[in-house]
Every structure is written in C-alpha cells, then in structure tokens.
Nucleic acid binder design. Structure first.
Lengths: 153, 153
DNA sequence: ACTGAAATCGTAGACTT
DNA sequence: AAGTCTACGATTTCAGT
C-alpha cells in the first residue's frame, strides 16, 4: 500500500468506471502495472467491488429511514437472518448506546414503511423500535480517504 | 423505464464495471442500444455515478459510528456546511424523532472519534450529541430494487 | 514493472423499422 | 424514437522480458 495504490483507490472511488489508461496517466505507470495492482487490491479485499449509484427517489423509493431496534441477546441471530432477507433493509449494524441494532431502510412511501415496521416488531426478541425518517440528505458519500499509514504489507 | 432498463440497473448496481457486451447478452439487445439506454439513465439522473467500494477496516478506519445531533434550527445551515467540510463524515441527514440530524462517520480509532466529537460539540447551535458506535455490520448494501412501476416518462 | 501483440470492447455514423 | 449494422479507435488482456 504505497502512494500509487492510494491514488488508485481515490480515483476508483470517485469514478468506478475509469479506464486503466487514465489511471496510468495519473500515476506515471503503464497499463499492465495498473492492472496488476488493482487485481491485487481486489485479492487483498481492499476493493470489495464496483457499483452503480442510483437515485433512490427516482426509483420510487421516497422514504429513507433509520430504525433503532431494542432486542434481546438470545434472538440477535434471528434478527440478522431476517434483516438479510428483507430487500428494503440496506444496512444492519449492532451498536452501542440505546438500542441494540440500527437499520437503514428504503421504502416507496409511508405506507410501505409502516408495513415494514409491523413486520420488524413481530421479529422474535424485538422489544421496541424507534424510527427516524430522513427529511433531507445533505451529504451521502462512500469515499474513504486512504491517507493513514497502513499496518499490513 | 421498462423491463430492460430495470435489468440494466440491477446489473450495474451489482457490478459497476460490467461490459456493455455482457449487458447486451443479458437483455438481447445490441451494444449500441445498451449504450444509448445507459447514457439516458445517466442524463435522467437515475444513475448518479459508479464507485469502487473499499473496505474501511483494511484502510485503517476501525470505527464506524452514528452520531445523533440535537441542534437549534437557526444553525442548521452551519451544521450542514461543517459536515460537508469534514472528510470523516460520510453521511449527514436531517431526521424526524429525537435529534435533528444524524451523521454516519468513519474514524481510525476511538481517539480520532473523540476528537471528532469534540469538534462537533463546538459547532454553533449544537446542544447535544448521542453516539452509537458500530460493533458489527451484518448487512451493508447499496442495492435498490427497481421493481415498482415508475411514474415519470 | 515494462514492451508489444492479440483479443475484446466502446464509439460514431449511416441505415432500418 | 429506438434499434441495428458496420467499421474504426480505444481498452483490456496476456504473453515474454
């Protein structure tokens, strides 16, 4: 993980379809060298994948919400299994502080959000939920600055 | 927005570097037709961009946290401006329920999280914060299912 | 990590429905 | 307006060095 790798990671996060040729220009390396490095970054798990970012509202998902769940420990695995199966749930984290888990969900409207909440409240071990509907999103980035010195390799 | 567009959106969300040829095979269209559709999806804002997804932990960001902020309305714009400037803040939403805003942040460790929190608590209008540190992430998808009938076009 | 050739892919214009 | 065909240039890939 040297300066060149960091440049590649920044560029690929900014534009996931950038060509090897452009990356070669940015780094003063040749195209095959770029390719080798990117393959290695993938093999090391640093690059997990490439994804198109689509606009949720334009795909008829008008509601984004965060749902804090209070659940009992014995049923944590059930909760995870249910969360993985539900397409409207984009993220599921276990967290510290009030609540045991936090979900990020996308639904078409308030009706579908209500249906989803009813489902969740029926999951085994769920004692309570607290929903925060997103009114506006001012920043939504997936960019991670690779600026720290790395420990490994 | 027909069945073909939905297939394209699904495929591009799953693999942002998929070739037009592969997409042509999936949809039984020719490569130029695929290209035209993708250009239009971009022009309509449905495709916002393409991004490499990198592993935060492997880039020395060990902490993910959600910070709920209670702020006074007069200073909302200040809060947004500060959030946009801070690279550790990945998301900033205004929300309903307890708290006025929710941040998703990534930091190297608890020390840098503490520093960030100190900064945020000094922002004008911030009355209080409530931090939820992520212990484990069980689902982290950006996939949005384009399965509803669309209103526009 | 570089070179160079071969295969694959993306792009643009003209044409068809 | 949307798709196809064809041809050309760009990109990716895969040797060997």
């Amino acid at each position: 993980m040297d300066q060149t790798d960091k440049t590649l990671l920044r560029a690929l996060q900014e534009n996931g379809r950038i060509t090897y040729h452009e990356l070669a220009e940015k780094t003063d390396l040749t195209v095959p060298a770029i390719r080798d490095r990117i393959i290695k970054l993938k093999e090391r798990g640093i690059i997990r994948g490439y994804h198109a970012h689509v606009d949720a509202k334009l795909l008829n998902k008008d509601i984004t919400a965060f749902i804090m769940i209070e659940s009992v420990a014995i049923h944590y695995q059930d909760l995870i299994d249910y969360a993985l199966q539900e397409p409207a749930i984009q993220e599921c984290h276990s967290i510290t502080g009030g609540g045991s888990h936090l979900l990020k969900v996308r639904t078409k409207n308030t009706v579908s959000l209500e249906k989803l909440l009813s489902k969740i409240q029926c999951w085994p071990g769920v004692k309570g939920t607290e929903t925060h509907v997103v009114l506006s999103t001012f920043k939504d980035s997936t960019f991670i600055e690779p600026d720290e010195t790395e420990l490994e390799s």
